[in-house]
Amino acid sequence: QTVVIGDTTYHLNNPEAAQQIAKELAKKYGLKVVISGNTIKLK
């Protein structure tokens, strides 16, 4: 699972954790979560 935040890319072996982290950050910073395949992007 790949999480992309701005110009930073994180690789996590746990998809659920990756999605949870993405949701928390999106909520905290008012970002939009875009999931395509096994890549999660925060914009």
Rank of each mutant, 00 (worst) to 15 (best):
V33Q: 01
K27D: 12
Q20A: 11
Q20Y: 09
G6S: 04
L25D: 00
A26M: 07
L31P: 06
A17T: 11
I40H: 00
Y10K: 05
N13P: 14
S36T: 11
V3A: 02
G37Q: 04
I40Y: 03
Y29F: 09
L12D: 02
G6H: 08
K32A: 11
P15F: 14
K23F: 11
K23H: 11
V33S: 01
N14E: 07
I21K: 08
A26C: 13
L31G: 02
N38Y: 02
P15M: 13
V4C: 14
I5N: 02
G37L: 04
E16M: 10
A22H: 00
G30V: 02
L31E: 05
K28C: 12
T39M: 09
L42D: 00
I21R: 03
N14Y: 08
T8P: 05
H11Q: 07
T39H: 04
S36M: 11
Q19R: 11
N13I: 08
A22P: 00
D7N: 14
I21F: 15
H11G: 03
L42S: 01
K43G: 06
S36W: 07
K41P: 00
S36E: 14
K41V: 14
T2I: 14
G37P: 02
G30I: 02
Y29H: 09
L25K: 00
A17E: 13
L12R: 02
V4I: 13
N14R: 02
K23A: 11
Y10R: 04
T2S: 08
K23Q: 12
H11V: 11
L25N: 00
Q20L: 11
A26W: 12
E24Y: 15
I40Q: 00
L42E: 01
K32Y: 09
A18N: 01
A22Q: 01
L25M: 05
A26K: 06
A17F: 10
A18G: 02
A18E: 01
I5V: 07
K32T: 14
G37K: 03
T39Y: 06
I35V: 09
A22K: 04
K28R: 11
G30L: 05
V3R: 02
T9P: 04
V33Y: 04
T2K: 12
I35Y: 06
A18W: 13
T9S: 08
L12S: 03
V34W: 06
V3I: 14
A18S: 03
I5C: 15
V4H: 08
K41Q: 13
N38G: 07
H11A: 05
K32M: 13
L25A: 00
K27C: 12
N14M: 10
Q19M: 15
G6W: 13
L31V: 07
Q1F: 15
N13Y: 09
L25H: 00
K23V: 09
T39D: 04
I35F: 06
V33M: 13
K28W: 09
K43D: 07
K41C: 15
V4K: 09
T39F: 05
L42A: 01
N13G: 09
Y10D: 03
T2C: 14
T9E: 09
